[in-house]
Design a protein around this nucleic acid. Structure first.
Length: 829
RNA sequence: GCCGCGGUGGCGGAAUUGGUAGACGCGUUGGACUCAAAAUCCAAUAACCGAAAGGUUGUGAGAGUUCGAGUCUCUCCCGCGGCACCA
C-alpha cells in the first residue's frame, strides 16, 4: 500500500460523488425527508474562513448520518451575495459588483468543493441573481400590500463612514456593527417593515421550537414584552392630558412628577404656557445632536429641564405635579412620557435627588424589612400610603389602582420596526414607484386622473402610502441598472438617484411620468427567505411551489452563529410567519431546531483578522494536510458550541490518526474472518458513543472515541474485515474521503456513503467484568476486577478479605457499607 | 447594572449527570530504529514526599449538604458573550 496521500484521493472521490449526484436531494423520494441547513456564506474577497468550515463540517456530519439512517436529506448551499464589502471593493477598484461577486463565489465554490461537503450543488442560489431577487421583491410587495411596509420620516442611525442608515439591530455599542464607525441620529424618509405587528407571534413561536436556550433568551429580550397600563394625567386648562405607560400602576400614589422625552409633541402644544421655552428649546437641540456613542459615554448622568408654568394632576392623589423633559425618557417607547416614582425607581430617584423633587414611599417589601437610607426599593411588595389600597399586594394593586383612574391595560414591546431602506447600490431595488398624480388621486377620490381614465383601485399598501405604487408582478424583477458610478453620497441619497434614465419611469397605475424608489433593501432581505428558495430554486412561476414546501419544510436543523440570533434569525422568522399568514408557506416557524457554533480564534485566542495577520486560510491547510484532516481537526479542536483557539500543532494529532487509519486499512492486514471479541465489544461501544455524540454535537469526544478504537486496532496483527468496515462507516461522516478510499480498496463497489449507519448491539457492550473500586471513608484504597453481576454481599466479602483493606480497618467494624453496582464499594467506619 | 455561559495538568480539553478526576490530542522526557536526522514505534508524564511500595494534596476562593462533590446549595473573585435609561 502506498503512503497516505490526501490530495490524490480527495479530488478523485469528490469527482466521483459529484458525477453520481450522491448528495442531490430527490424530491420524489419515498424516504422521510430531512432538511439540514447552514447559514449561507457572504462571498467576501477574503475567501472561506476556517469558521465556515467548522459549522459546515458539523452539519455535513449530521447530513451524512441522516442519509445513512435512511432519510432523504436536503443540505443546500448558496450565496448571500448582496452587501457592503462587495460594493466598497467595487468602488475602490472600479470593478462592477457583479463581477466581484462572480469572482468571489467562484472561489468560494472551489474551496467548499475541496472540503468534500455533501451539499446539493444543483440547488445553488445567489441572492444577487435577478431570478432570485425577483422573489425577494415580490415578497416585499406582499408585505406592502398587507400594510406592513410604510415610508416615514424618522430618526435613523446613520453611519458616517458607510454613509448608510442602520437598523437598531445593526448598532453595537453606539457604533456601526459592520465598520465600527461613528453613528449619529439623522432624520430621513425610510421604508419601514412593521415587524412590531409580529412581536407577540414571534415571542409565542419560540415556545414551539427547539432552539438553544441562549438564542431563545436573546430573542425574548430583544422583543422585550412588558405588561402595564396607560394612565392619563390631566393638565389644568388643557384639553389633552399627558398619557404615560407604566408597568407599576401600584406606585401611582408615589408619582411626584412627570417626564417627557425631549421630542415629545406635547412640548410644542404647550409652548405658550411654558415660561422658559428658550431653555427647553436649547435642551432639545443639545440632545438631538448627541451621537449614539456620546449618549452611552455620558454614563447616564441625568439631565433635564422643567417645563415652567405647566403642571399636571396625579389622578389618584389629585395633587399638582411638575412636568420635566429629559433624555432619559425615550421617545420611541411607550408614550414617550413617564410618571416618575423616585421612591421605587432608581432612575427617577437619581433624577429627583439631582433636581430636588419630592420622594414618596408607597410600597413596602413583603418581609416588612425597612428600606436602607439612600436605597430604592424597586421590587413588588405591599402597598402603603395609597388610600384605600393600603395593605394590598403589588400584583393586585397594579390593576385595581389602574382601574380606579380609568387606566387601560396594555402590552408594550421593546422591538422596533425594521428600517428597511438602504441608500446604496448593491442591493435589491425596492419595487415601488412614486407618482404625484396618484398621490393627489389618493387624497381626493374625485380628482382628474381617475375620472379621465378607468383605473384600478388602489391596493391597501398604496392607500396607506399615498403616491407609492407597486410595480406590477409581470414587471418584476426591477433590475439594478448597469452603471459605472455607485458612490454613496453624503446627502444620504442612493447612488441610484443619479441614474436619471433608470429613475424616470411610467406609473404602473396611471401610466404617467413617475419616479422609481431609489433606495435598496438591506442585506438581511435576501437571507430572510433563502431556505424556502432552496426547496424549489428554479421555479419561475412562484418563489417556491407550495407542495414542495410542504414536503421539505420546516428546516429540521439549522446551525449558525450566535451573532445572527437577533438579526437574521428574527427577520427570517418574521418573513416566514408573514408568508404563513398569507397561506403561502405551510409552517409558522421555519426552523425546528437551532444550534450554534463557537468562533474560531487565532492562535493565542485573539480574533482572526487581516490586520493582525493571524487568519488561517483553509486552502493551505487542505494543501498541507488534506480536507479530511482539516475537517477532523476542526471537530476535535474543542466543544462545538464554545470559542476555540487555532493551534497548528493540533492538526498533527489528527494527521497521525489518519495515517494510522491508512496503515491499518492495508488489505494485507484485513482478514476475511478473524474472531476478536474484545475489539468487537469496543467497536460497538464506539458506534454508540459516536452516534450519540453526533446528535449532541459533541464532535470532539466522537473523534476521541474513534482514536481510542484505532489505538486498539494498532495492537492487532490482523483485523476482521466486517469489524473494520463497520468502523470505516462510523468514521466516514467525519473523514469522507479516506474512508471511501479504504472501503473501495477492499473491493466494495458501492460508495461507503450509500451504506446504512451501523447499529450497536447492547449485548456486546455489556462488560463481563469490571474494576470494583473500594473506598474507605470515601477515599479510594483499593481496586480489583470482579464479574459484572456481583452482588453487594459478594463484593463486601471479597473486599473485606483484602489485606490492604484489613490493614486500613485495623480490626474495627464497618459502620456502614455503600455499594454502587458496577462501580464501587464504600466502607465507612 | 441586568441576563446568559464558563473557570479542571505545561497547553486544547474528558468525566457514564453525585461514584476511581485528568479520556483523547498536543507538548515534554527517556528508549528502540538510523551513520545521522526526520518520520515512526514503545514507555513515562497533575503536584509534593519517597529508592520503591506507598502516602499527602488537588477541579477559581470560602462555606454547606452527602458515606462520597469538578458535578448540588449559598457567598465571593475572575474571564467571555449579550442587553443596556425600555418606565
Amino acid at each position: 500500500m502506498n503512503r497516505y496521500h490526501p490530495a490524490k484521493i480527495e479530488a478523485k472521490w469528490q469527482k466521483v460523488w459529484e458525477k453520481k449526484k450522491l448528495y442531490n436531494a430527490k424530491p420524489s423520494s419515498r424516504k422521510k425527508k430531512y432538511y439540514a441547513l447552514i447559514e449561507f456564506p457572504y462571498p467576501s474577497g477574503d475567501g472561506l474562513h476556517v469558521g465556515h468550515v467548522r459549522s459546515y463540517t458539523a452539519m455535513d456530519i449530521v447530513a451524512r448520518k441522516r442519509r445513512a439512517e435512511g432519510y432523504e436529506v436536503l443540505y443546500p448551499i448558496g450565496w448571500d451575495a448582496f452587501g457592503l464589502p462587495t460594493e466598497n471593493y467595487a468602488i475602490k477598484h472600479k470593478i462592477h459588483p457583479k463581477i466581484v461577486t462572480k469572482k468571489n463565489t467562484d472561489n468560494f465554490r472551489r474551496q467548499l468543493k475541496s472540503l468534500g461537503f455533501s451539499f446539493d450543488w444543483s440547488r445553488e442560489i445567489n441572492t444577487s441573481d435577478p431570478g432570485y431577487y425577483k422573489w425577494t421583491q415580490w415578497i416585499f410587495l406582499q408585505l406592502f400590500e398587507a400594510g406592513l411596509a410604510y415610508k416615514t420620516k424618522t430618526f435613523i442611525n446613520w453611519c458616517l463612514n458607510c454613509k448608510i442608515g442602520l437598523a437598531n439591530e445593526e448598532v453595537v455599542g453606539g457604533r456601526c456593527e459592520r465598520c465600527g464607525g461613528t453613528v449619529e441620529k439623522r432624520e430621513k424618509e425610510q421604508w419601514m417593515l412593521r415587524i412590531t405587528a409580529y412581536a407577540d407571534k414571534l415571542l409565542k413561536g419560540l415556545e414551539t421550537v427547539n432552539y438553544i436556550s441562549e438564542a431563545k433568551v436573546q430573542q425574548e429580550h430583544w422583543i422585550g414584552r412588558s405588561d402595564g397600563a396607560l394612565l392619563q394625567f390631566p393638565v389644568p386648562h388643557a384639553q389633552t392630558p399627558i398619557e404615560v405607560f407604566t408597568t407599576r400602576p401600584d406606585t401611582l400614589y408615589g408619582a411626584t412628577y412627570l417626564v417627557l422625552a425631549p421630542e415629545h409633541p406635547l412640548v410644542d402644544n404647550f409652548r405658550p404656557r411654558i415660561s422658559n421655552f428658550h431653555e427647553v428649546e436649547a435642551y432639545r437641540e443639545a440632545s438631538k445632536k448627541k451621537t449614539e456613542e456620546e449618549r452611552l459615554r455620558l454614563e447616564r448622568e441625568k439631565t433635564g429641564v422643567e417645563l415652567r408654568g405647566l403642571k399636571a394632576i396625579n389622578p389618584a392623589t389629585r395633587e399638582e405635579m411638575p412636568v420635566w423633559i429629559s433624555d432619559y425618557v425615550l421617545a420611541g417607547y411607550g408614550t414617550g412620557a413617564i410618571m416618575a416614582v423616585p421612591a421605587h425607581d432608581e432612575r427617577d430617584y437619581e433624577f429627583a435627588r439631582k433636581f430636588n423633587l419630592a420622594i414618596r414611599e408607597v410600597v413596602r417589601p413583603r418581609s416588612g424589612a425597612p428600606i436602607e437610607e439612600g436605597k430604592v426599593f424597586a421590587g413588588e411588595g405591599m402597598v402603603s400610603a395609597s388610600g384605600r389600597f393600603d395593605g394590598m399586594p403589588s400584583a393586585k394593586a397594579k390593576w385595581e389602582i389602574a382601574k380606579s383612574v380609568a387606566g387601560k391595560r396594555i402590552t408594550q414591546y421593546k422591538l422596533r420596526d425594521w428600517v428597511f431602506s438602504r441608500q446604496r447600490y448593491w442591493g435589491e431595488p425596492i419595487p415601488l414607484v412614486f407618482c404625484s398624480g396618484c398621490q393627489k388621486d389618493a387624497a381626493n377620490p374625485k380628482s382628474q386622473i381617475s375620472t379621465v381614465k378607468k383605473m384600478r383601485q388602489f391596493s391597501k399598501g398604496e392607500r396607506l402610502n399615498p403616491g407609492w405604487i407597486a410595480v406590477s408582478e409581470k414587471n418584476l424583477p426591477v433590475e439594478l441598472p448597469n452603471v459605472k458610478e455607485y458612490m454613496p453620497t453624503d446627502t444620504g441619497e442612493s447612488p441610484l438617484a443619479n441614474i436619471t434614465s433608470w429613475v424616470g419611469t411610467k406609473c404602473p397605475r396611471c401610466g404617467l411620468k413617475a419616479r422609481r424608489e431609489t433606495d435598496v433593501m438591506p442585506n438581511w432581505a435576501g437571507s430572510s427567505w433563502y431556505f424556502l428558495r432552496y426547496i424549489d430554486p428554479k421555479n419561475k412561476k412562484t418563489f417556491a411551489d407550495f407542495k414542495q414546501l410542504k414536503h421539505w419544510m420546516p428546516v429540521d436543523w439549522y446551525n449558525g452563529g450566535m451573532e445572527h440570533t437577533v438579526l437574521h434569525l428574527l427577520y427570517s422568522r418574521f418573513w416566514n410567519q408573514f408568508l404563513y399568514d398569507q397561506k403561502l408557506v405551510p409552517v409558522r416557524e421555519p426552523y425546528q431546531k437551532r444550534t450554534s457554533h463557537g468562533l474560531i480564534m487565532g492562535e493565542g485566542g485573539m480574533k482572526m483578522s487581516k490586520s493582525k495577520g493571524n487568519v488561517v486560510n483553509p486552502d493551505s491547510v487542505v494543501k498541507d494536510f488534506g480536507a479530511d484532516a482539516l475537517r477532523l481537526y476542526e471537530m476535535f479542536i474543542g466543544p462545538f458550541n464554545q470559542p476555540v483557539a487555532w493551534d497548528v500543532h493540533g492538526i498533527l494529532g489528527v494527521t497521525r490518526f489518519l495515517e494510522r487509519v491508512w496503515m491499518l486499512g492495508d488489505p494485507k492486514r484485513i482478514a476475511k474472518k478473524h474472531a476478536d471479541k474484545e475489539l468487537e465489544a469496543l467497536l460497538h461501544k464506539t458506534i454508540k458513543k459516536v452516534s450519540q455524540d453526533i446528535e449532541s454535537m459533541a464532535f470532539n469526544t466522537a473523534v476521541s472515541a474513534c482514536m481510542v478504537f484505532v489505538n486498539e486496532c494498532s495492537k492487532r496483527e490482523m483485523l476482521d474485515r466486517a469489524l473494520w468496515q463497520t468502523f470505516l462507516r462510523v468514521l466516514s461522516p467525519f473523514a469522507p474521503h479516506i474512508t471511501e478510499e479504504l472501503w473501495q480498496v477492499l473491493g466494495n463497489k458501492k460508495s461507503i456513503h450509500e451504506e446504512l449507519w451501523p447499529v450497536y448491539n447492547p449485548k456486546l457492550i455489556r462488560d463481563e467484568e469490571f474494576v470494583l473500586v473500594v473506598q474507605i471513608n470515601g477515599k479510594v484504597r483499593d481496586s480489583f476486577t470482579v464479574p459484572s453481576g456481583i452482588t453487594q454481599k459478594e463484593a463486601e466479602s471479597l473486599a473485606l478479605a483484602r489485606e490492604k483493606i484489613q490493614a486500613f480497618l485495623g480490626g474495627s467494624q464497618p459502620k456502614k457499607i455503600i455499594f454502587v453496582p458496577g462501580r464501587l464499594l464504600n466502607i465507612v467506619f
